[in-house]
Design a protein around this nucleic acid. Structure first.
Lengths: 336, 336
DNA sequence: GCTTTTTGCTTCATCGATTGTGCAACATTG
DNA sequence: CAATGTTGCACAATCGATGAAGCAAAAAGC
């Protein structure tokens, strides 16, 4: 069964089946009818291949073929539902369309992002989707130099088509929700605090705009001290809030589930007054529904985003303006 | 810059640099000093390669080399922190060891698991790690027929070495914690209910043993109705509990964060008596810490598990008995 | 000045699968 | 029976990178 350490090739199978390697190849890749191989030989070859545990050498196969069918994706982290769902659905949809998906996780490290992108191109990926990339333009530049299509997802870039959430609108809606609930349940009128994210990041900037626009619509002025976009990571959020001990009603706009972890930690350490705090979060997590004080979460429409992204694959005339995908706002009753 | 649709090869670079393809190749793969290529030519080639956006054709390269350095991993889902962390850390550790990681998500679908495994072998993966696989033995059988090493992670198999958590001990500890807290805080002595998972699944079975052992140690008898291992998925757990409206203190052992979602949904719909419920969960999620009623969670030691798994790669004499990795129990104060 | 060594490359076979071309053997037609 | 068509396969070139072997030119040694 096991022939030393070498893997079985079509040449091995050819010997066993007393046929030529080319006949074996055409049997195994399904072109045998077109090539007028007899059913008898085809059956014999397939049986032997099965017995020997044969698996094509994709390296050799792809070298000869013109198309690889590989679509690559880089993703920052698997530590939240959003990126996890993106990776998972991407794989499902790619397979359904006959592609071979390769996803790799780049830890929000710009160097690793670029290296991983190069690696995927080395594997002859036909298209590369950069999800939430720190420096998408560098990647697109390399892709276009190598003649590979690139698409940005979640965060936009200038040199390739981008599919992103409509951060502005969703943030405005979420802000409205939190403010409404603060008013109704606490009799308090803001301004809210904006917690988490980085202002240099496009999404954070767009969300902040929505956040400010809703305040403006209500004629609530937002002092700079309320903008606490001190980075991602739960620690950053917890640290930013550490000195904040509300002496009355208050509300927070939390910019990601990661930041939410920090916020909830802070919240749980409030010795008193916790019932006077309301918050909402941009991004969704199933446990968010049950967190006390949480009035709602924005769920990004991953399916739609990926549909749009797949729609761009292979297209030549792609828009340079980001494609905006609406989000869904989930509202929760009061948990306490 | 872009030469039509074809990608740049070493032959293109060779022409531009007025050198031979083999010289170009050795410059680009770092063997040029050994092969006595002058610094001058090397610099010229590297400059041109950069300008042209050259990326090796891994297909061609791997076809010629003897080793691929590819390690494959299949993972069921990215919908919880455990598998997310496994995938992420696997990639980091693999890269650190000079491997090229390829992870693919198989949706808990046995057919897809097997297809994905075959695909990874087709890519010449040198080793395949099956994480939480439904039918690991089928995969190992195929691997050994193709002369590829396979390792099971999270769930054990018979035909390949396995690295799994010490489910029994951790479950016993968690059961002890929940029972202790029920006794101390509610003055109630069990028996707990075991919620989620599937008894046919090795881990669920081992955890149930630990659960029962702790009850036995305390001479608490557990009626069959308390074993609610009706499957994974939040819905299954919520459904199983739907008719349960405790009229006094009660406690639950929740078998996964996915099941926990269902439990928390049930919990949040209890109109009264919620403060008389205590539960703990096998598996960790950052938001778990803040869920009311949650007394503790078991965090599996992903780093250690992966270290053990990587330790097996390339080894010939691997144990057939599963390698058990201890878990960490995280305890929480009362949230209410 | 002539041999030997070293330097700095080039040439060519090779990895495994694919595919256009070719060519016997057999069947069909007139 | 010769001409033509069909069936069923084998041959060989090819994809791009690699590395052993080889070879000319320059440098070193005597």
């Amino acid at each position: 069964m096991d022939k030393g350490t070498k893997r079985t090739t079509i040449y091995d199978l050819a010997k066993l089946a007393e046929a030529s390697p080319s006949a074996v190849s055409s049997v195994l890749n399904g072109t045998w009818e077109k090539r007028r191989i007899s059913k008898k030989l085809a059956a014999r070859v397939m049986k032997i291949a099965e017995e020997q545990g044969y698996a094509v050498n994709v390296q050799a196969s792809l070298l000869r073929r013109e198309r690889s069918n590989i679509v690559g994706m880089i993703v920052p982290k698997y530590d939240n539902r959003y990126f996890g769902e993106i990776a998972e659905q991407f794989e499902v949809m790619a397979r359904a369309k006959g592609f071979f998906p390769v996803v790799t996780c780049t830890q929000r490290d710009p160097e690793l992002e670029f290296e991983a992108a190069k690696e995927l191109i080395s594997y002859q990926a036909e298209c590369l989707i950069s999800t939430g990339a720190t420096d998408p333009d560098r990647i697109s530049a390399f892709c276009s130099a190598s003649g590979v299509q690139s698409i940005n997802l979640d965060l936009p870039g200038k040199n390739a088509p981008s599919v992103i959430s409509d951060n502005y609108s969703a943030a405005k809606e979420l802000t409205k929700l939190i403010l409404d609930r603060c008013e109704r349940e606490l009799g308090w009128n803001g301004p809210l605090r904006f917690v988490g994210g980085r202002l240099a990041d496009h999404n954070t900037a767009a969300r902040l705009e929505g956040f400010l626009a809703e305040h403006r619509d209500r004629s609530i002025s937002v002092p700079d001290t309320c903008i606490m976009a001190t980075g991602y990571s739960a620690e950053k959020a917890a640290t930013a809030l550490a000195s904040f001990r509300p002496d009355g009603p208050t509300g927070l706009f939390v910019n990601s589930t990661i930041s939410l972890e920090g916020v909830v930690r802070w919240y749980s350490e409030l010795h008193s007054g916790a019932e006077m705090v309301r918050y909402g979060c941009f991004d969704w997590d199933p446990f968010g529904t049950f967190l006390p004080g949480n009035v709602g979460m924005v769920e990004q429409d991953v399916t739609m985003m990926l549909n749009r992204a797949f729609g761009l694959i292979g297209k030549a005339d792609t828009p340079n303006e980001p494609i905006l995908v609406p989000c869904k706002l989930r509202t929760f009753p009061i948990n306490s």
